[in-house]
């Protein structure tokens, strides 16, 4: 689905990411850990194609297409979707219009807003005055309407209360084709084979691990993907000994 080779990214002339190599196969969900300012959002922004992220070196291949220098909307139409960490407000644009835009011409299921407990926000201006948790649901709703093949989630659960976190977790599972986990008609292996959607999810809290069962974890440290492994083990390690030690440990161990 996604292949990144030797990517080097600068913001305002300052190199933020260096030598990023990453492969996400069809149906795989990856999580990305890393301290504040390590460059996680920068990576998602570079994959999305935002102008402020200058690509100095390397390439981004999506569905066998070199998208390294493609405009943002072409990537979106190819099937990349991003949940923003800090989405802007679009004054005067009602949420319902935005959801229609996200649908990219496809019919958006009518019950979607209701399912995200967001029906009463559909007449509000996009993100205008939304609380932190409401912003997350706004973003998720937009993404569900967009239904991308590669789902990029930038801290989907930060600032979300305990009741809504389950809702968010379930929605992410659905986005990633991982719902129906309790459907026993199919064996787990078969289910995995049928999955099409891939994802890259940034998390600090790790709560999302309780809902989504990701396949691979990465740690971004100082602008480099410094280690890779089982998401839960990595998270446990980070919790116990911190990012720095964790990265050092995995470097010596592996």
């Amino acid at each position: 689905m996604l292949e990144i080779n030797g990517l080097k990214v600068a913001v305002a002339g300052k190199v933020i990411l260096e030598d990023i190599n990453l492969v996400i196969n069809d149906g795989e969900a990856h999580v990305l850990f890393g301290p504040n300012g390590s460059g996680k959002s920068t990576l998602l922004g570079a994959i999305s194609g935002f102008a402020r992220y200058q690509i100095l070196d390397g390439e981004i291949i999506f569905k066998d297409v070199d998208i390294t220098h493609k405009p943002v909307h072409e990537r979106a139409l190819l099937g990349i979707g991003l949940m923003f960490q800090r989405p802007p407000t679009i004054k005067g644009l009602p949420m319902e219009d935005m959801i229609r835009i996200c649908g990219q011409g496809r019919e958006v299921p009518k019950e979607l807003p209701e399912r995200l407990n967001f029906a009463k926000f559909m007449h509000r201006e996009v993100n205008h005055g939304f609380s932190g948790g409401e912003l997350k649901r706004s973003e998720l709703l937009q993404l569900m309407a967009q239904d991308p093949d590669l789902v990029l989630l930038d801290e989907p659960e930060s600032g979300v209360d305990v009741e809504n976190i389950a809702l968010i977790g379930e929605s992410i599972n659905q986005l990633l084709d991982r719902d129906g986990l309790n459907d026993n008609a199919l064996c787990p292996r078969r289910k995995r084979e049928l999955r099409r959607k891939s994802g890259l999810v940034i998390t600090h809290t790790g709560h999302i691990l309780n809902y989504v069962n990701p396949d691979v974890g990465h740690v971004l440290f100082d602008g480099r993907l410094s280690c890779m492994g089982n998401p839960r083990e990595l998270f446990g390690c980070i919790q116990k000994i911190g990012y720095g030690e964790c990265v050092r440990c995995s470097q010596t161990c592996s």
Partner: peptide, 12 residues
Amino acid sequence: EIEYLMARGLSE
């Protein structure tokens, strides 16, 4: 704001 809408699939 433009990029936000472009990320949802609209041209510039």
